[in-house]
Amino acid sequence: MSLAQTDKYYLPQPSLWPIIGSVALLTMAVGGVMAMHEINHGLWVLLAGVAVLFFMMFGWFGEVIRDSEAGRYNKQVDSSYRWSMSWFIFSEVMFFAAFFGALFYTRVLSVPWLGESDTMQQLWPTFKAAWPTAGPGLTADGLKFTPMEAWGIPAINTLLLLSSGVTVTWAHWGLKKNNRMQLILGLGMTVTLGVVFLCLQAYEYHHAYTQMGLTLGAGVYGATFFMLTGFHGFHVLVGTTMLIVMLLRSIAGHFTAEHHFAFEAVSWYWHFVDVVWVLLFILVYWLI
């Protein structure tokens, strides 16, 4: 269907979606701040913003998909998408780098500093620096928690995500061979693995909060643990959602063996999320 490639560059028409997106973010930000400061209806404003954002995404992506299926994107556009997706993933890498940096800094630098020489003698005389910790002040106030063990759910989750990397690649092979059954099956399995991962992580969080005393407030260990795994989990959620869209589009007959960058972009993203998880597994769960 998208064989009708043109040599002319496709310039999209004026679009209302961006400004709708801006309104959505403004509403979300104002609502979020209201909610954080317990101002009436803050949460509703936030949700309204989210709803507008979803509306925008449906509309905008829908338009892009229609353009694509109508064959308006030539080779050059395709290659633009490749560049931009790569740079986008690079920006995500740097976002995670900030949090990995925080983990490194606290583990290797600030926690040891708190437990040695003048800082310890003058300010935190009873503190014994060791990782994991909730920090000298909170421990002194009686805060106790159990660190998360690597070889339970996290190990299973590692297996799940690694296998999902395989299944998505297998789906890609199917697509390239024009084997639509393999594509749909592979995507279906990937989505399932992603969903199971998310459920297990939700269970793990629940367990941490209710049984282990491990919360966001449990010092730097809790903070880095939840922020890193939390942002990762959020990325899995986004990735899974995108995979579901790809699944639906595959079922609807979109994509051809040559022309399927949307699928590839999602699989790149998924592999990226995978790699982050492996790092998390090693640095957050395993080497404590």
């Binding site: 600030s110 300010l123 909730a134 010092g219 730097v220």
Partner: peptide
């Protein structure tokens, strides 16, 4: 991290919780 330190009880930048303002 500032936002969560302010609103969600994390201690990235608070020595009492093992963090460091200098971070």
């Amino acid at each position: 991290m500032l936002l969560t330190d302010r609103n969600f009880g994390t201690h990235f930048f608070n020595a009492a919780g093992g963090g460091d303002p200098v971070m």
